[in-house]
Design a binder for these strands. Structure first.
Length: 637
RNA sequence: GCUGGUGUAGCUCAGCGGCAGAGCAGCUGAUUCGUAAUCAGCAGGUCGUCGGUUCAAAUCCGACCACCAGCUCCA
């Protein structure tokens, strides 16, 4: 008996029945057999030592492949669980999946794991890997599966099995004495895991529900080569080095105090960054047909009852009272924008009306989630509300996508991806209206040929949304921009415009932000550039460093000339050696240092040093001014 | 909010029942120097807050506050 195996390149080869992917790989190349992690058989992942079902298409996946990495890490999580069961037999197993950069496993244990525990567990994992235990799959009927889990006292596994659909295949994986419920597939044996590390421990609720018991989660990662693990750990270190909270203090950009947890204070240098971002934003929005408004921070509670925020967003809002009346601090800018629109009647000829607002909003976030400028309790959204006719919606969305693309990619150099979020459980409005809004967003994305992921049930309470997730230089993604289509707010506030037919019609409202919030965007910029901002954003663009007191007058004049030309230039007249001043300017990541001594005074020049390129030699003051002004205007990165 | 951890000078940290400490930063003085740290001196503290144990608390115990790592949530 033979079976026909079709490879990715289309060639077909006969193999004896019951052959495993690993055996096929060996027949092709020893190197492939060594590197292959998992197979894809007829489009589905298939363990390397599980016999092929018959004639099939076969593809070999190595660690390069996302799916293979997940399998590799998933098997590592089983090794972790096995080690924990050996050392702490009383531990109950919950779940242990692979995640984007590694894996975790949740355990129910009487006490929290300590770093010393992790070391012991790592040692035991080494032993399991060294023993190269074969990993074998087996399936059981529901009753026997339940008996197996119950017999082992694994109550969480019992719960998982009970929750499986009646027709689902229930599979287990065995390695040595250890058996775990798992869909698989897995590596053929534990020895395939070359390099791993347990990273940290954290509490996590069973099934992510805070009503449930808190379990102990161990995070880790693994790689087929030690060098890859080392690289990954370096990336973690680098992320720590670039932490905006650390750099924010060192570069004197902002601070947060016990007096106001989650309410950041911006220092003069942080304000330069903010103001530059705002200035650029205003310029681009004016070019794109936006008008700017500003609406109050505190407004009557009734307004928020009418907008639906009272019903859907109360827990996140702050309240106060004025002259015995109830007021709320705004958590969003939309009702304010609506009131501006409603302040006079509108003709269809005016639409779309694009009202931008750098609006300061306050939200009550849980204390445990606050994080520097990334997650705060008050922040400034670069908001805009677009009021348009239904047939204009798609074109408006396309315009916003263009503008966002320009900001992210052209100016800041970020790559990004897009996600579409649909109707959540706790939402206002009918399914029909949501479907209409969602298809408008989908239509705009598809017209533009943008790839997107769908997050079911993740929309805002008043409408579906597109989110922009930008990717920084360490490969991390951050949610920033969003576009939301809203048919409900216009309904609630009875917004209208007079159409061609002379009748009243309902406009559609589009909510959108590009930076997202100035605070979060600044945090991302700090980490992305590691504090070395492009010249146009740098709080201090030039520092003039005289070599001795003799050169102070000239140095002061150089700085003053640059300031008059619109450059943010400082003069460092302290009685220190030039090396010391350079070091300090470097640490502050100031783009340009101008050293001035006898030579420069005599010839009326400056010696230019760039923070990254080093000594660039002498230049005339005008020549240098042209150079830096050119970079500032071009927003050179 | 929940679990675990951490709060000592502006920053990084030592001290862990018996006099509050170091380096860097700051201030003063000397030095006048050519591309990442010149030398010397001085000053700097409610040891997160409140309470308890003790002859004695930065140190041990409790509560609270803040921060950190996660969970959950989100711009």
């Amino acid at each position: 008996m033979t079976m026909k195996i079709t490879f990715k390149d289309g060639t077909i080869v006969n193999y004896p029945a019951g052959v495993t992917p690993l055996e096929v790989a060996r027949s092709l190349s020893p190197r492939l057999a060594k590197e292959v992690v998992v197979a894809r058989v007829n489009g589905r992942l298939h363990g390397l030592n599980e016999p092929l079902p018959g004639d099939a298409s076969l593809e070999f996946l190595t660690f390069e492949d996302e799916d293979a990495r997940m399998v590799y890490r998933h098997s590592t999580s089983h090794v972790l669980a096995q080690a924990v069961k050996r050392l702490y037999p009383e531990a109950r197993l919950a779940i242990g999946p692979a995640i984007s950069d590694g894996f975790y496993y949740d355990f129910d244990v009487p006490r929290a794991f300590t770093p010393e525990d992790l070391e012991r567990i790592e040692k035991e994992m080494q032993a399991i890997i060294a023993a190269d235990l074969p990993i074998e799959r087996f399936e059981l009927p529901r009753e026997e599966a339940l008996q197996l889990a119950q017999g082992a006292g694994e109550n969480y596994k019992v719960e998982l099995i009970s929750a499986l659909a009646p027709n689902e295949v229930i599979s287990f994986y065995r390695q040595g004495e250890f058996v775990d419920l798992c869909t698989g597939p897995h590596l053929p044996s534990t020895g395939r895991i070359k390099s791993f590390k347990l990273l940290n421990v954290a509490g996590a609720y069973w099934r992510g529900d805070e009503q449930n018991k808190m379990l102990q989660r161990i995070y880790g990662t693994s790689f087929p080569k030690a060098s890859l693990l080392k690289e990954y750990l370096f990336r973690l270190e680098e992320a720590k080095r670039r932490d905006h909270r650390k750099l924010g203090a060192e570069l004197d950009l902002f601070s947060i105090h016990e007096a106001g947890p989650g309410f950041p204070f911006f220092h003069p240098k942080g304000m330069v960054l903010r103001n530059e971002l705002e200035r650029f934003w205003r310029e681009e929005h004016a070019k794109n047909g936006y008008q700017e408004i500003r609406t109050p921070i505190i407004l009557r509670q009734e307004l928020w009852e009418r907008s639906g925020h009272w019903d859907h967003y109360k827990e996140n809002m702050y309240f106060t009272s004025i002259d015995g009346e109830n007021y709320a601090v705004k958590p969003m800018n939309c009702p304010g924008g609506v009131l501006v629109y409603r302040s006079k009647p509108h003709s269809y000829r005016e639409l779309p009306i694009r009202l931008g607002e750098l609006g300061l909003v306050h939200r009550h976030e849980l204390s445990g989630v606050l994080h520097g400028l990334m997650r705060v309790r008050c922040f400034t959204q670069d908001d805009a509300h677009i009021f348009c006719r239904p047939e204009q919606v798609e074109a408006e969305i396309a315009r916003i996508i263009d503008l966002t693309e320009y900001f992210y990619r052209e100016v800041f150099g970020f790559d990004y991806h897009v996600e579409l979020s649909t109707k959540p459980e706790k939402a206002m409005g009918s399914n029909e209206i949501w479907e209409l809004a969602t298809s408008a967003l989908r239509g705009a994305l598809e017209a533009r040929g943008l790839d997107y992921r769908v997050n079911e049930g993740d929309g805002a309470f008043y409408g579906p949304k597109i989110d922009f997730h930008l990717r920084d230089c360490l490969g991390r993604t951050w949610q920033c921009g969003t576009i939301q289509v809203d048919f409900l707010m216009p309904e609630k506030f009875e917004l209208a415009y007079i159409g061609e037919d002379g009748e009243r019609h309902r406009p559609v409202m589009i909510h959108r932000v590009i930076y997202g919030s100035l605070e979060r965007f600044i945090a991302i910029l700090i980490e992305h550039f590691a504090g070395a901002f492009p010249v146009w954003l740098a709080p201090v663009q030039v520092r003039v460093l005289p070599i001795t007191d003799r050169h102070a007058a000239y140095g002061r004049e150089v700085a003053e000339t640059l300031r008059r030309a619109g450059v943010r230039a400082e003069f460092d007249g302290r009685n220190e050696k030039v090396g010391y001043k350079i070091r300090e300017a470097q640490v502050q990541k100031i783009p340009y240092m101008l050293v001035v001594g006898d030579r420069e005074v005599e010839s009326g020049t400056v010696s230019v040093r760039h923070r990254a390129k080093g000594d660039l030699g002498a230049a005339s003051l005008e020549g240098f001014a042209d150079r830096i002004l050119g970079e500032i205007n071009a927003k050179t990165r």
